[in-house]
Design a protein around this nucleic acid. Sequence first.
DNA 1: CGTAACATTGATTTCTGTCAATCCGAGTGG
DNA 2: CCACTCGGATTGACAGAAATCAATGTTACG
Lengths: 239, 239
Amino acid sequence: MLTDKFLLKRRRDRLSAEALGALEDALTDVRVVPARQKLVEEDETVTLSTYLVHGFLCRYVDGRGGQRQLVAIHIPGDFVDLHSFPLERIDHQVATMTDVTIASVRHDALNGLMARHPALVRSLWFSTMLDAAISREWIFRLGNLPAIGRVAHFFCELGTRLSIVDLGEGSTFALPLTQMDVADACGLSSEHVNRVLRQLREAQILLFADGRLIMQDWDKAKSIAQFDQGYLYVDGVTD
Amino acid sequence: MLTDKFLLKRRRDRLSAEALGALEDALTDVRVVPARQKLVEEDETVTLSTYLVHGFLCRYVDGRGGQRQLVAIHIPGDFVDLHSFPLERIDHQVATMTDVTIASVRHDALNGLMARHPALVRSLWFSTMLDAAISREWIFRLGNLPAIGRVAHFFCELGTRLSIVDLGEGSTFALPLTQMDVADACGLSSEHVNRVLRQLREAQILLFADGRLIMQDWDKAKSIAQFDQGYLYVDGVTD
DNA sequence: CGTAACATTGATTTCTGTCAATCCGAGTGG
DNA sequence: CCACTCGGATTGACAGAAATCAATGTTACG
């Protein structure tokens, strides 16, 4: 099922099998898109939303000087731009980071779906609020953490999110991003990210290379990152 | 009416008079709270949401070192923590910045309201998505702008938002924040904010003193801030 | 084999934080 | 009415973090 990972461990059980089935059926136009392609342009009026089945996707804002600020990273199970459903227009770019498999839902189909399955409204709204909670944490990361903390926080978040949807084995995660991507997410230069990654590697905290993230010491990483997964709203975890 | 400013110039007309009236009626417990009080604590389970009638309010995350990172500022007409309705728990603190007048809506009342007025769902969801769009812009501000740009961007945003709800006269806005508040929002030290404010003042771009913001040169301010109000979703403005 | 994208390292500059001191205005209490 | 205090604003000197600039290395791939 395409929606296997949708809200996994995040109150997924509040959705009836029927509602989930209806959502699954509304997902059409499953397709593969190659890495590094723009999917949606800023200011576009949007009439459908994208659900990510496989691969990594990002949303970003372009600065004047050609810099790029990532505002979100999406992993399988995420609705990428569901916020465009209430907003109707999008204020940033959406692009693939790796080869991805995506599916689409037409906004008019969503309207019908929600009318028939009221519980779905809450789940979809909740899903967009999860993204918002993650955005807030990114604000904290950028505003309050030094470079090493930002990078550690970024990887703590992604490791945790990947675990939630059962991607990764133990502390090893497939994460085929470049150091430039990490830099764009953390508001740092790629050179500095490189230096920080060396520090983290030498301190045996985490290893990021060859498109793989290995969390060697979660406790130390969380401490440096001031990371607390509460904002990810995992079932049963308040922490 | 309490809800006079709710979604003003933001598709407010999509709400019928009945729906808006029902929302107004659901707002109870109108009260005044003094400046610098916590309203909601992190990790609290929340059963009601706060609507801001008058004054300024903020949401923030505490860092380990006692630093404070603002993640949102709210002005009259904003639902402060409507996101707690789908999330049910809150992952940050809510506090007043000035004396405020607030009203509350019980979440169970919202459920009933939404059942009777389906259009209200979209409006409330939209309102939380506006907050999310602002969060994304804060990420851009913190990740990509130098100090002077961050401060200018912060004031461009607040000036624009205050204009939208008809607060402020011309380019003058009552904005009774401290330099420390600005620092906490922009991820800077208060000393540096002070220096940056002097630069902006000497360049005749903007003036922030005595609880008042005066935008002297919007164009220059927007340019330094790389500010584009598209993300505020003002009716008819795509810009 | 050559090229291009990405990673790595070093030298230097720039920006911003920290520390320390002073200033100012609004209240407060004697 | 005036000294006092306190929170906030201001300024300067200095230290530290991260950007920038410049090379070099490495790998994958056509």
